[in-house]
Amino acid sequence: MCTVTYIPTLDGFYFTSSRDEKASRATIPPMKHRIDGIDLIYPKDEIAGGTWIAAGYNGRTACLLNGAFHNHVKQKSYRRSRGLILLESFKHKSMYEFSNVVNLNGVEPFTIISLIHLPGITSEFTEFRWDGTSKHLRQLDIRKSQIWSSATLYNSKIQLQRTALFEDWIKKFKDVNGRNILAFHSTKHGLNVSHDIIMKGEDDLMTLSISQLHFNNGNVVFKYYDILNDKAYVTGL
């Protein structure tokens, strides 16, 4: 939930998300869930019951990052998990609709990257940020490779360094494939160990897993790499 990349291809795209979290935080590998009549596939956080990345059988995917624009002062408790907010967004036809109606009072700041994609049609690619006070929604360029880093772990200077690493990588690997982008997410790139793409910080904080959604001509493959336990899962939609 702390590093997300989007890479378009001729026939679809790659969404890849690294989860930087305490090693003690238990996770259930991705599987199919049905929520209010909507079929989704996602890994599940055992504590809060939500997720940081999910794909719907209706051609939609969404990724969550902690924080909005800057690090915030954490409250003792919050009304609802951000991972559950991500799942709730799938009940709505678009992020525009969702952002207008969702009640985020008492919810910790977050960023959601959402893409609605059907074969031959891309109807919506958005970035939705909640800073604890206001909602911010903007349309994204479907043709542009992009990276996002969690504002709670990486300040603006570090985010720029990570963006530069990603842009250099894109230039180097013009023929992008899933293996290459997974290598980007799972490799040390020379930054401080607590700031690198695969990171290890204080209090047992580290990159625990990498999730990847590959959309290709209407087919979807969900790859999940449990780094801590050295296990891999591959599921098709």
Rank of each mutant, 00 (worst) to 15 (best):
N100A: 13
H117F: 04
F69A: 03
G50D: 07
I38G: 01
D36Q: 12
M31E: 14
P30L: 00
H72M: 02
R79K: 15
W52Q: 09
I35C: 03
G49D: 05
D39V: 02
D39K: 06
Y78D: 09
I47F: 15
I113N: 13
G37F: 13
Y57A: 07
I85D: 04
W52I: 12
W52F: 13
K32T: 06
D39C: 05
L65A: 07
K93P: 10
G120K: 12
T111F: 00
S89Y: 06
P119T: 05
P109R: 10
D20E: 14
A68W: 01
C63H: 10
M31G: 14
I112E: 01
G56A: 04
W52C: 10
G83N: 04
D36T: 00
A54C: 02
Q75G: 00
G83A: 09
R60V: 15
R79Y: 06
Y42D: 03
T111K: 06
A23T: 08
W52P: 08
L87N: 02
I41G: 05
G59W: 00
I112H: 03
L40P: 03
G106A: 11
R82E: 05
R60E: 15
R19W: 09
I121R: 11
D36I: 01
P43M: 07
R19Q: 06
S94P: 07
L104R: 04
S123R: 09
P119G: 08
K32H: 03
A55N: 01
G106N: 03
S123P: 03
L40N: 02
I112K: 06
I112S: 07
A62G: 11
G67W: 02
G50K: 05
P29D: 09
T51V: 10
K91E: 08
H70G: 00
I85E: 04
G106F: 04
Y96N: 10
V73C: 10
F98N: 04
N66V: 06
T51S: 10
